[in-house]
Design a protein around this nucleic acid. Sequence first.
DNA 1: CAGCTTCATACTGCATACAGTATGGACTCC
DNA 2: GGAGTCCATACTGTATGCAGTATGAAGCTG
Lengths: 224, 224
Amino acid sequence: MPPQTADLQDDGPIIRQSLPAEVATRLRDLITQGQLAPGARLNEVALCAQLGVSRTPLREAVRRLAGEGLVELVPARGGVVRRLTLKDAADSLTVLKALETLAGRLACAAATEAGIADVAALHAAMLDRYAARDRLAYFKLNQAVHTAIVALSGNETLAWAHGAIQARMKHLRFIGNAGERKWADAVAEHEEMVRALAARDGEALAEVLALHLDRTLDRVAPLI
Amino acid sequence: MPPQTADLQDDGPIIRQSLPAEVATRLRDLITQGQLAPGARLNEVALCAQLGVSRTPLREAVRRLAGEGLVELVPARGGVVRRLTLKDAADSLTVLKALETLAGRLACAAATEAGIADVAALHAAMLDRYAARDRLAYFKLNQAVHTAIVALSGNETLAWAHGAIQARMKHLRFIGNAGERKWADAVAEHEEMVRALAARDGEALAEVLALHLDRTLDRVAPLI
DNA sequence: CAGCTTCATACTGCATACAGTATGGACTCC
DNA sequence: GGAGTCCATACTGTATGCAGTATGAAGCTG
């Protein structure tokens, strides 16, 4: 009989997080990986059958994505996967640049050594998956590095805004890993990022983050 | 979430926007104006009766506010109005500073003369309400000036992020207008902002915006 | 009297039925 | 033959019923 005070670790056994949140995560994955293409309508009953839930939690998940800007709600037509224009991508990357450079400066000042080590570990894992040309794993670790750096800033509002905008770009970045040369460039930029962070050189980190995001626009622009 | 422009005109012609959106707006007002105090639970049936809608659209509105960070969703307890800590306010203002300074620089470069004139008109109206010590109207026009400057940047993602974070601070700012001296300072800073914008001096605008937001933290900090 | 257990209540979360509306096709008229 | 109109269909938006759970009070025990 296990003691019923599971407060600390939450090894996530029995406690299921809210169903709509789970559905929203699965929908996000479907969008970033392209099973739900930009412009596609989200047919509620079809998705209900596919995901094995009822309409109410599914609708709530769709509204959540709408709040994040991933889907658009058309009256009497429901949700459609938002189609990013080139301007949308440029706008989002402009904002991401402002947010990440701020986060980089804050992180260099506020991060713990353990936190920096965690980022370095994520980066190392990413390099490993790059060497193996494991695109999906590389992609996820890449995103994780950016998210971790922002988290190190200790600013929750910053993390929130960054996460929401990053989610909008995920699909583009997911399909944008093609091109050996561009890929190598991106990896090199990440290398610089981690080095600057380890040295706690906020200005250098901000600079390379800005460069990285500017180049990201070049990398994804041909895809639109 | 569409950036909230429906404060001045928009007398709601024939086309009624979606019911949940309308309910969400009314809930936002209840929160910013304090009828729903921080920490208060959102009783669904009670609010349904008060607003004259059924549970489904009300629930959707509550989830929308949760997505914006105004309320927190506790499992099996529903929505509670989020209580801002001092750190939350400082974090949000830090991000707002990054966003608004960016917007200021972009606006000076991209705005049309008509757009700048619109901001000046809003500012003039605000001065008028300040002279009359009409706090509610002053407050709304103050927010409108900030929103309008951000809109002039032409960056929709920027406007989205700014609007969401600004909404979180609305209640604090609403109750934070007390103090004749602080109020006069804020008005003077706005004066500088509009002057810099009219001169299309992006650096000066960014600088005064940063100062304004730093001082906003000082102004609202005693309220937490 | 204090603390624990038990039970009634009320509220949230989910499922489903119903109504309103946009869409696509077929038929008719020019 | 082409265009306009009418209608059937399917899907969204809303309302409501039902089940699970947290909460608070009352009763019981040490």
